[in-house]
Design a binder for these strands. Structure first.
Lengths: 291, 291
DNA sequence: AATTTTTCCTGACATTAGTCAGATATTCTG
DNA sequence: CAGAATATCTGACTAATGTCAGGAAAAATT
């Protein structure tokens, strides 16, 4: 009754009931579930029909018919892909966008009510949901370049500074400004800023800036609470090293602090070695890695 | 993108996909979802047909047909309720019980795999699931009497001792034994042991034992992590006070420790007043409440 | 005792979902 | 350029689910 598996199954029951209610609320807009699910994947800029079929694991014939019905209602329109005229692209019409907004509103309302029910524990609940969603989404995790001034980068950097301020004693939090006034050095072609996405939540970042023509510096490796303990930091470092190699750098440097024990351990176990200090406090560890 | 509501919706998407996969695994046993859902509600001891209809929000005709099919497969049998011969009761046959065991095994496997995926964070994940399931189940919470030696009571008491050992400095954990050798005094007709259930997880307990003919002592008020901040402790105290009144006691006593700040605050705000010490360490607060 | 209400059942029907076999247009491959 | 492969569509069909009207039996009400 009380082991982990039994508790997961209790969770499953509770959530199935909730999700069932959500399905019914789709029906609340007078549209069968299948069609509603398709509609939710059609974006104003256009979505490949193949992607819709794939995501929903639908038969090609059925997908086609759903799209035909949505078209008949005037919610979508389908055009052929100019790049490959066998493929087709479905696009939301204005009426379709209005309809989607209505679905959004329903979902938003339900979500707001649930959060409100959590009362004083709303932060705990959201953290719990992040943790579970990140676990379930793990196979879909994607690492993509981002602009250092984008909202996702800003989110990552704020979280990063919050964390190191809490962990490194005596660190002055006012020295950080987000967005970074020097963000240009993290932007191509000189630098890089990578973000890992789990669905639409940024769960990790790492960045690179040039020190000179052959040496670059890795900065701001951060992993969201919900994604820790899964080797994501290692993947991020791999990704940024690949970028650096592709850009022609010969070696990488970074500075960090011994208070960030897991990070330091990760670096040391992946080919980084100590070098002479090249920056000041709060750093107390300086590392280099040849590429 | 990054506020609580957006994150809840990401959670929803992740879980919907998971639950969808679960539905398909029902189909893994070659039975359509609707019938599988009905089968899962039919218990070996018998379940009212009306309850099945209600829980699944099914049409009366459809329910009837599902039960007819299950009967044809030899999984259930339906008899009329002797107390009201319009009503009918569905019962699992032996073959039906075997089939249910197979469903259980599927669910158990899936759950085990998911927990395994969590790796080193399995405890965090289970705690997160508890929190969410408790929130979603909140309206279904039930307080029921339990035997002080039952597995649910044991679970509550172990959790309780773990907690106070962690919170009260200098407490010797070896003085507690579960099950309690003196459990008789918490058993009717002399005492009471109440457990609050959220689905099949015990999330709170409180107990009562007689000190003399008119005075009883409240002991072992405990609330599961996942259920805190929702006023459950208050409800448990209410419930045990009602029990004490019904049993004819005139006043209640308890001892506690100032380290348990929320508990002490709760008592003081609900009519308890300080009295002279009537026990020793680790208690440092003694309270009484007239009924 | 007659009437109404409740519970469950059956049959008829409608809607939704899913499958399969071609047909057509386009692109890829050798 | 011929033939193979790919992407989508249409039509025919089946399975599953949901809805409705009414009927039979039992219980409750007048």
């Amino acid at each position: 009754m009380l082991d982990a598996i039994a508790r997961l199954r209790r969770f499953n029951r509770a959530v199935t009931r909730e999700v069932g209610a959500l399905d019914t609320s789709f029906l609340g807009r007078g549209r069968p579930l299948g069609m509603a699910r398709v509609l939710q994947l059609v974006r104003p800029e256009g979505t490949d029909v193949a992607i819709i079929r794939d995501r929903l694991a639908l038969d090609s014939g059925l997908t086609s018919r759903f799209l035909r019905s949505l078209e008949a209602e005037g919610l979508t329109e389908t055009t052929t892909d100019p790049a490959d005229r066998r493929r087709r692209i479905a696009r939301l019409t204005e009426k379709g966008q209005a309809e989607m907004a209505a679905y959004e509103a329903i979902g938003h309302d339900r979500a707001a009510r649930l959060i409100a029910r959590a009362g004083s524990r709303d932060r705990d609940i959201v953290a719990a949901m992040d943790l579970i969603a990140t676990l379930l989404n793990r196979d879909q995790l994607e690492i993509r370049p981002a602009d250092p001034d984008s909202s996702e980068a800003t989110f990552c950097l704020r979280s990063y500074f919050e964390e190191i301020t809490a962990r490194i004693p005596g660190l002055d939090p006012t020295v950080f400004s987000v967005p970074d006034p020097a963000s240009d050095s993290y932007r191509p072609p000189r630098g890089r800023f990578l973000v890992a996405w789990s669905d639409d939540l940024p769960v990790a970042c790492v960045s690179l800036r040039p020190l000179d023509a052959t040496i670059a510096e890795v900065k701001r490796l951060w992993v969201h609470d919900s994604a820790r303990g899964q080797g994501l930091a290692r993947r991020m470092m791999h990704a940024i090293e690949d970028e650096a190699r592709a850009m022609g750098f010969r070696s990488l440097r970074l500075d960090t602090n011994t208070a960030l024990t897991e990070a330091v351990a990760l670096y040391r176990s992946t080919g980084w070695h100590d070098i002479a200090p090249y920056t000041g406090a709060p750093a107390n560890v300086w590392l280099e890695k040849p590429l």
